[in-house]
Design a protein around this nucleic acid. Structure first.
Length: 586
RNA sequence: GCGCUCGUAGUUCAGCUGGAUAGAAUAUCGGUCUCCGACACCGAAGGUCACAGGUUCGAAUCCUGUCGAGCGCGCCA
């Protein structure tokens, strides 16, 4: 409807220009908006005000002129000028009722569109280091990334969901070594666990499975490992140096093959856990992309070569630097360390180069807001490689602060109190977690009230929406008890009987849904959909309280049941896009 | 110190990229079941849009400055 009205306006402008009422050269952007106030009709256009200066006429006069040149349209009942120069459109009743049959006909596809035109979009989200289970900070990124992906998909984009697995690097070495040390403890070695090692219970779990399957094959004496190592932090040494020494010892004592085996056992165990966790959260990926594969396929060296060739690198202090400051980064960054090892940043350049080479039209990275300083250097790298950095959107997600019993839940990994996504799912359920995470704009700090998410009351917006859905199902169940029937075909014929204000409001709300999905998708803002669903649920509840649906009059009853069935469908569609279930009873 | 993000009812948040009288929810107060699920509905009250300037027909929204909050500023990942 919006686009049709927009066409009418541009035709009117063109025709007014031909009649020399408006100057030939004009710059404008036709915006058709939903009116906030019913008395302003259904849609409004502010183009007359935009044209005022260039045309050197009063906005209201321009609006008058456009009105006389506006072609008629069967969906539009009347057009009025109001306020400083708004052009208000009033839709015809046929148009207003048509939405119900459209919804019933398109069912779960209602709200889908083709604005994306099949463009290929890659969405990378979560991508947490596989050094431990996901925590609630990752949860928001997961819920947000999944919702954005599903919205884009509904908008006709071809979406590729991807998790970048950091299966290389020092953090993973620390994990591998931590696993090995716990394994040695299970073998009976008496050792002091390094201050900088991973101390979570899951490390014991991995070590136990290693011990079960491999026996004592990988055992080495603690004294041999410690031989020549520096002091750990509690003994007055440096914990970083100490753990690096242990990693080096693990590599030399175990040999390449066995070290890799221990390392991969830890990696795969945790990755399986993350995969399982996300799946229960309703988040699935098309691809788990390995960082290590970038090294194995020489993509990293290729990326570095390309930067070298194009003259964007230099050597200093034995390291190879990328001149990211040429592209607005605050300083240059190291690609290859003086010890010859490439940095994480080098892998990330290769990864983004690979994304571009795979031919995506758009690339979206969902990152935790603490990584915001990283954006300029990745964009710089893309520019230096000759790619279009504007193809990349980095969406930053702020952390959520949890509250329980009015108290902030302390979030230190050390205390172990309520930090994992799994615990959150267990406490409030997957539906509530998914919904609450996307209720707020992503760059907004957010307070996550656990008690509210758990409560089964009208305070809880998710229950409120689900209840609206369940309520319609309940009404339908009541039909048979009352020995009355629902004839959909007959209902669709009699929609014009729906003349109550509550009904007209609900119809108008339903017709907004496709616009909400499109806007939420294109703007990457699922919270728009969450808020819309609350409004729609409110419309249903209000209607329910004001009018009886199951009435004796067959025609009116069928029409009303059509309307609430359509509402139920839209609620289900919207909740589905947010990864929340739509129950028939609660 | 520099950079990024943010500041809207007591509280948690919207505000459609500059539009009509700044909106919900919650908390508070007062009403609604002989009725399809009261897990609901109706009403009241609640605001110097952090502050000060600027841009224009028009600013919560854009620009500058100040104050305040969070995060970032490794040859870690």
């Amino acid at each position: 409807m919006k686009s049709q009205l927009s066409q009418l306006i541009s035709q009117a402008i063109a025709s007014a220009q031909q009649a020399a009422v408006l100057p030939a050269e004009l710059e404008y952007d036709i915006q058709i908006e939903r009116t906030r106030d019913k008395s302003h009709g259904d849609y409004a256009c502010n183009v007359a005000m935009q044209l005022a200066r260039a045309a050197r006429k009063k906005p209201r006069d321009i609006a008058e002129a456009l009105l006389t040149h506006l072609p008629p349209h069967e969906g539009v009942d009347k057009v009025k000028i109001a306020g400083p120069g708004f052009i208000n459109f009033y839709l015809s009743t046929n148009t207003i009722y048509a939405v119900v049959s459209t919804i019933i006909e398109q069912a779960e596809r209602f709200g889908h569109s083709t604005v994306g035109a099949g463009q290929r979009v890659q969405v990378e989200f979560v991508s947490a280091n596989p050094t431990g289970p996901l925590h609630v900070g990752h949860g928001r990124g997961a819920a947000y990334g999944a919702a954005v992906s599903d919205l884009l998909s509904a908008c006709g984009f071809n979406v590729h969901r991807e998790y970048y697995v950091n299966d290389a690097g020092r953090q993973m070495d620390i994990l591998g070594t931590s696993v090995w040390l716990r394994y040695l403890e299970l073998c009976g070695e008496e050792l002091t666990f390094p201050a900088n090692g991973y101390k979570g219970d899951y490390v014991w779990d991995v070590a136990a499975s290693l011990h079960r399957n491999e026996g004592e094959r990988l055992r080495h004496a603690w004294s041999a490992i410690l031989d020549g190592a520096p002091k750990d932090e509690p003994e007055g040494g440096d914990k970083e140096e100490y753990i690096d020494a242990l990693i080096a010892r693990a590599k030399s004592l175990l040999g390449n093959e066995d070290y890799r085996f221990v390392f991969d056992t830890g990696l795969n165990y945790i990755l399986d856990d993350i995969r399982d966790d996300l799946q229960h959260f309703g988040v699935v990926y098309d691809e788990w992309y390995s960082e290590r594969s970038l090294t194995d396929s020489d993509a990293v060296t290729r990326a570095i070569e390309r930067l070298k060739q194009s003259g964007h690198t230099y050597e200093k202090d034995g390291a190879l630097w990328f001149k990211s400051s040429d592209y607005g980064d605050e300083k240059d960054r190291v690609l290859v360390r003086d010890n010859g090892v490439t940095t994480y940043f080098a892998s990330d350049i290769a990864y983004h180069m690979d994304k571009m080479e795979r031919g995506f039209d758009r690339v979206i990275d969902v990152w935790g807001a603490d990584h915001h300083g990283y954006v300029p250097r990745v964009k710089a790298a893309l520019q230096a490689l000759g790619d279009d950095a504007d193809k990349l959107d980095v969406l930053l997600v702020q952390f959520a602060v949890l509250y329980r019993g009015g108290e902030k839940v302390q979030m230190s990994t050390r205390s172990g109190e309520f930090v994992t996504l799994r615990q959150l799912r267990k406490e409030v359920g997957s539906d509530a977690a998914r919904f609450f995470y996307v209720l707020r704009k992503c760059e907004q700090h957010m307070d996550f009230d656990l008690d509210l998410a758990k409560s089964q009351s009208n305070d809880n917006p998710m229950y409120y929406i689900q209840y609206a859905h369940a309520r319609v199902s309940s009404v339908m169940r009541q039909l048979s008890e009352k020995q009355l029937s629902y004839d959909q075909h007959n209902g669709l014929q009699n929609l014009p009987l729906l003349t109550e204000q509550h009904e007209l409001d609900l119809l108008s709300n339903l017709s907004k849904y496709p616009e909400v999905v499109e806007s939420a998708g294109l703007k990457h803002e699922p919270h728009l959909l969450a808020h819309y669903l609350r409004e729609l649920a409110n419309g249903l509840h209000t209607y329910y309280n004001a009018h009886q649906f199951i009435v004796d009059d067959d025609q009116l009853r069928n029409a009303r049941l059509c309307l609430i069935s359509a509402t139920k469908q839209v609620l289900a569609n919207g909740l589905g896009l947010l990864g929340v279930s739509a129950p028939d009873s609660m």
